[in-house]
Amino acid sequence: MSNDNVVMDEADTRLLKLTQDGIPFVHSPFAMISEELGMTEEEVVHRIEQLQKNGFIRRFGASIGHRAIGITANAMCTWNVPDERVEEVGAVMAGFTEVTHCYERPRYPDWPYNLFTMVHSYTRKDCEYVAQEISRATGITDYKLLYSVREFKKTGVRL
């Protein structure tokens, strides 16, 4: 379990800054970083494991260019869910494998939708089908699919 009392030290912060743009694809990808940080490659790897264990990073792995590989349909489904059902409905929505993100967010006078799910798939039809399935499973019928038509920017969250 992650321990919320643990804080990152300076070396952790430097390690994240040195790796956040991606490690090189070579036999020893941590060699240069270990030199910069003055520690062994084993220590670098161990620190990454600890950062993950303590929740500072969600994972260490690849970000995929999903458009390049044909996963071009990307729908933000927004749902108007009665407040007292959010906990239950959110859990059901999160259970769908096609749903990559699921959040509750505030409503506004001209924005009644309080649950957000991201659905990524190969075609819009697939996304629509998933939304229909979610609607059937939860009984929520007031929803909107907002397709992304262009990507203006996508960088990971940076330190």
């Binding site: 490690i23 929740g55 990073i57 792995g61 940076r158």
Partner: peptide, 21 residues
């Protein structure tokens, strides 16, 4: 373009930051 990078996926909230949509 199939792989953007291999690196840490930072948990903004846990590193003391805050984010919004």
């Amino acid at each position: 373009g199939a792989v953007r990078r291999i690196g840490p996926v930072i948990n903004t909230k846990r590193v003391g930051g805050i984010s919004t949509l």
